[in-house]
Design a protein around this nucleic acid. Structure first.
Length: 476
RNA sequence: GCCCUCAUAGUCUAAGGGUUAGGACGCUGGCCUCUCACGCCGGUAAUAGGGGUUCGAAUCCCCUUGGGGGUACCA
């Protein structure tokens, strides 16, 4: 049978990386098995639905490199793919389930339900309306009383299933409650809609968060009652913010779009989250999407929760940045140059060259570049360096020798600057580092800078370099 | 409370009863080097605790502890 998996988010707010990972694994599993990946929107709770969420989900998955075979925007044979548009389907199946004895009408009001709470504040429905006669039900319906449809759980016995990651899950039927399947507004609950839709959409493998692990037996009872084949389940452990807190929408930083804005590359984010809960076996860590599809395997899924570490994702992102071609890096970096002090002032490609090996996320560019404009009076004792054996008086001599070289250098470009100053140092019997570190200080007032001092001279250009050199010379 | 479930370094993970418990991030020492990075080479650090089973346990069983989830007309 052809594999069909689905990602079924509710359209509330943003996609955090936990949701994305669920989607990713469902996608990888489908592709690994040459199957179909479906997007279904679970918007049965109208109060939580957020405008514009569906396009956002599409956009996010597209950027993540996950392609949707069937879904609300691109359609497909099992549509509609938005649950609110399937309302009549659920009602039809709910009524059918009543005929089959798997569900019943319930007319209990809020007060009665609340009176059912026990000493722990735990409510448990007492099957009160199960005893209603056909006539009473007819009369209530005719009178227009609000009602829900509840699942009729067996009162004894056990039910079990085999989860692909957690193994055998067994629960006593007595622990199962008669959950609401169809709400009084006519919308189904998740408990019902997911079963109906997964069956109708031909989902073979249900891949979702482990919060459903213990309620899955209820869903299986529904499949059984309808006489449908149960799907295979793959429950995923949660991604945590720390040891005790799950990643939540409130943790805004774990939001995919926010990471993109901070200068993470989508490939790196996806690569990193794939690694949370899945160890590909060997030492492989940096993987393309097609590589992940190739080697994805359920047996390598982890059962324990994992803590999201931006630190490691940052490192991975740095790896991706360093592997970019200089042209691509420049393209990605330009929006950040535009927002920095160098906007429109210095050649971006020269900064790109020195920054590519020095940043892990693109947004670092803004700070990393600011030194170039912060030149001003500084403490000349910085010229004293024991290791290099330099001091202010050496610096004065070095700058004096450097000035005429730069004045007459033609053309004024990096390689020329480097070569001429290297040979100047050699002539004078200085170490290259002695001269060039004095140059760094003279040009920037800083002991450390991204890039070499000759690269900085090149970026500043002849006029500005000479101006700063003279300024520094006069300080000495 | 009851039910389900998880447990290897600070973090992500590997080890289908027998390894000096492996790799990665982080931290750290060194090399390279005009600084800072990159890169390369090294170091640090773990089987939650207690009982079993076994010649032998991170691995199998039980208990304890700790964490997560469920117990909604949320998903």
């Amino acid at each position: 049978m052809k594999v069909r998996t689905r990602f079924a988010p509710s359209p509330t707010g943003f996609m955090h990386v936990g949701n994305l990972r669920t989607a990713l694994y469902a996608y990888l599993f489908a592709r690994n098995n040459e199957g179909t990946f479906i997007l279904r929107i679970e918007d049965t709770d109208q109060e939580r639905a957020v405008e514009g969420a569906i396009p956002l989900i599409y956009r996010t998955l597209e950027k993540a490199g996950i392609t949707i075979d069937e879904g609300p925007i691109n359609g497909g044979p099992a549509g509609p793919y938005v649950q609110s548009e399937r309302k009549n389907i659920y009602k039809e199946y709910a009524e059918k389930l009543i005929e089959l004895g798997g569900a019943y009408y319930c007319f209990c009001d809020k007060e009665r339900l609340e009176s059912l709470g026990d000493e722990n504040g735990v409510h448990r429905y007492d099957k009160h309306c199960l005893t209603l006669t056909k006539e009473q039900i007819e009369a209530n319906l005719k009178a227009g009383l609000p009602y829900v449809i509840r699942q009729n759980m067996p009162s004894s016995g056990t039910t079990e299933y085999e989860d692909m990651v957690f193994g055998k899950i067994q629960v006593d039927a007595a622990d199962l409650e008669d959950n609401v399947l169809l709400k009084s507004d006519g919308m189904p609950t998740y408990n019902f809609a997911n079963v109906i839709d997964d069956h109708l959409m031909g989902i073979t493998h249900v891949i979702r968060g482990s919060e459903y692990l213990s309620s899955t037996p209820k869903y299986n009872l529904l499949y059984d009652c309808f006489g449908w084949e149960r799907p295979t389940y793959m429950h995923l452990p949660p991604i945590m913010k720390d040891a005790t807190r799950k990643l939540s929408k409130r943790y805004g930083d774990a939001n995919f779009e926010d990471f993109l804005a901070k200068g993470y590359l989508p490939e790196a984010i996806v690569n990193y989250i794939a690694l949370l809960g899945w160890g590909p076996g060997g030492d492989e860590e940096k993987m393309t999407m097609s590589r992940m599809i190739e080697i994805f395997s359920v047996k390598n899924l982890t059962k324990s929760a994992s803590i999201f570490s931006e630190e490691k994702m940052r490192w991975l992102n740095g790896m991706y940045i360093r592997e970019l071609t200089p042209e691509t890096f420049l393209t990605f970096a330009t929006p950040f140059f535009e927002k920095s002090v160098i906007a429109g002032k210095y050649p971006y490609h020269k900064f790109a060259k020195i920054l590519q090996p020095r940043i892990e996320i693109l947004s670092e560019i803004i700070d990393k570049v600011s030194f170039i404009e912060n030149f001003g009076p500084y403490d000349t004792s910085l010229y004293t360096n024991q290791k290099l054996k330099t001091d202010p008086s050496f610096a004065k001599i070095a700058l004096e020798a450097t000035l005429p070289v730069l004045v007459s250098l033609e053309p004024f470009n990096h390689d020329n600057i480097y070569l001429s100053l290297s040979s100047l140092a050699e002539q004078k019997g200085w170490k290259k580092g002695q001269l060039l570190s004095c140059l760094r200080l003279a040009l920037t007032g800083l002991e450390t800078t991204p890039g070499g001092s000759t690269e900085i001279a090149d970026i500043l250009g002849r006029d500005e370099s000479l101006r700063r050199l003279l300024f520094s010379y006069n300080l000495l």
